[in-house]
Design a protein around this nucleic acid. Structure first.
Lengths: 324, 324
DNA sequence: CGCTACAATGCAATCGTATGCACTCACACG
DNA sequence: CGTGTGAGTGCATACGATTGCATTGTAGCG
């Protein structure tokens, strides 16, 4: 069912059908012609072929998303939130979201080729400067917007990691804590570094001694041991994200440590299912739907030829639980 | 950068470039020509324009996914798992995954139009017969495969809901329980009904009295009250899924009920983060990546013109935790 | 009546690729 | 020397829409 078919049945030209159905201004058609075309199109269930439109208009209305840090699954609440909110924003603007994560081991050439092959108008990229593919994309022709982590040469939209962690420190300080530790799982991500900076800055401003604890992501036992074995053990810890905080909470429960009496714990992200354990955790809640919404706005601005702000920072806020 | 540009620079025709780069058989080209074309394409970073290819070949290599039950976010571990595993399978086969969930209130016409506009070759659909859009898609021209829930007239790939819940009942029976309840949150989904059937069948086979408890999804307090206020309260319950089970576990904790001593609890799905509370829950683990992998195989078979099995059922298994 | 102006529509190019068919050689064979 | 054969390549069209420009008819105006 093509526009030409409709035109033929009505004894009109294909261009007339196209212009009427796409509601082109600058062209006038008689009311009767318009009605006949619309009726026939409706009746035959005609829809303009999106691929042909894309080819002609040199735009697909498809936005790509690519994460270079992990892939989506039941455990990855973070990507679930990001991708889900991207999808909703796209849908609201008549755009489509295409997923582009690559299996580990996929050559960068292949990945790059898939991304720039014209399938998508632009890309929301979750990566960082350490990644060769991200750097290549930053230099390439495809419009890219970075989310969550910065990429040099690419407009970025991220949450206020520094300010958020400072907020966490001040929150604990206001509750009377003076020995506040920070638990993280390596400095791989720029956002982790920013959170550490925020922690260090806030501690310095309060005249407090910082105490960094690096652990394996999955295992909190060693972290707890490190916390307790310190000369003057912290009475509170900021965790770099919620999952680390929860794992730590479980370790506390196993070790018979009371929270927050013996140890106050704060998370970061605000992505845990509040129906479950998440309702108990005090956390710095980043507004990810707002991050992705803005990222898409920035991307649309770039696509429209406008210039985009170098960096957009979205506010965060403390969400109270029962662990501080 | 198009194939024509390359052809011009080399003094060849566009068709030659196309055939060499796409590795068309049935056509012979001199080694030298092939080398020159490949070198030039490499050097200029040429990639065939995917949209033009799609238009010409009448296939996009894009698979759509649409869920009619909820949308993806941090809480929806189920969709995260389904979508994530679909994406990986697609990627392995050189296909792309496009997300098509619609905001509540989107007219079915609009949704249908987006799906059949030629953007995708086929659709993985998570819906059921109660949904008008699903029925319309089932009757339409777009190749569809249903996952998780059945849709009449569409090949379906799902996990063994009946058998799995029977497995759960037998598991509890083997542990000595004879008063086994079933907690669910309404019969909206066909898979829920299948799980209820499996429960009832297994109970009947064991000569036990069934005890169904329907509750609001988010609130377990009433469920627990219902369980305890029964004439002869169950000593164990099967929950229709893991989230319901976890919410119930929290209610138990709040009420001072020991699990499994006072009440054994089983879940269903196997999607909880095993780093967190999930490691404690005994559950029936469905193998969702296998479900989606098979769904894509079935869809590819349909696209290739082959016929697809009416229904594919994927085995499940009990994963032991500490709640039974 | 001649000329302009605009409403209403059609023609044809274009987007970039894949692909059926035709063409040109050179060579081998009888 | 004529001719079939196959290697190596080009021509032209199709995919289905959008869109700049041309064309027709009719009314308005001086």
């Amino acid at each position: 069912m093509t526009a030409r078919d409709i035109a033929q049945k009505l004894g009109l030209s294909q261009s007339t059908v196209s212009r009427v159905l796409s509601g082109a201004k600058d062209y006038q058609y008689s009311e009767e012609t318009r009605k006949r075309i619309r009726a026939r199109a409706e009746q035959m269930g005609y829809r303009p072929h999106a691929v042909a439109q894309s080819l002609r208009q040199q735009r697909t209305r498809v936005i790509g998303f690519c994460s270079r840090h992990g892939h989506l699954d039941a455990r990855n609440t973070f990507l679930a939130e990001i991708i889900g909110s991207l999808q909703r924003s796209c849908s609201e603007h008549g755009e489509f979201l295409m997923l582009h994560s690559f299996a580990p081991g996929t050559p960068d050439d292949v990945a790059y080729g898939e991304l720039v092959s014209g399938r998508i108008d632009g890309l929301i990229l979750h990566g960082n400067d350490a990644d060769p593919l991200a750097r290549r994309l930053a230099a390439g022709p495809l419009p890219v917007v970075a989310v969550v982590d910065r990429i040099t040469g690419v407009p970025a939209v991220l949450c206020d990691d520094r300010g958020g962690m400072a907020l966490a420190v001040r929150h604990l300080s206001e509750r009377g804590h003076r020995r506040i530790g920070f638990v993280h799982a390596g400095r791989g991500l720029a956002s982790v570094c920013a959170r550490i900076e925020g922690y260090l800055t806030a501690m310095a401003e309060l005249g407090l001694e910082p105490h960094l604890i690096e652990v394996d992501y999955e295992e909190a036992g060693p972290a707890l041991a490190a916390i307790r074995s310190a000369g003057t053990p912290p009475t509170a810890v900021c965790c770099w994200n919620d999952v680390t905080a929860l794992v730590l909470l479980e370790a506390c429960a196993a070790a018979g440590l009371r929270v927050p009496a013996d140890l106050a714990v704060m998370g970061f992200d605000g992505l845990l299912d509040t129906r479950l354990a998440g309702q108990h955790l005090t956390t710095v809640s980043a507004h990810w739907p707002e991050v992705t919404r803005r990222a898409l706005e920035v991307l649309r601005a770039r696509l429209g030829g406008g210039d985009a702000p170098e960096e957009t920072v979205i506010d965060v806020s403390v969400r109270l639980g029962r662990t501080t």
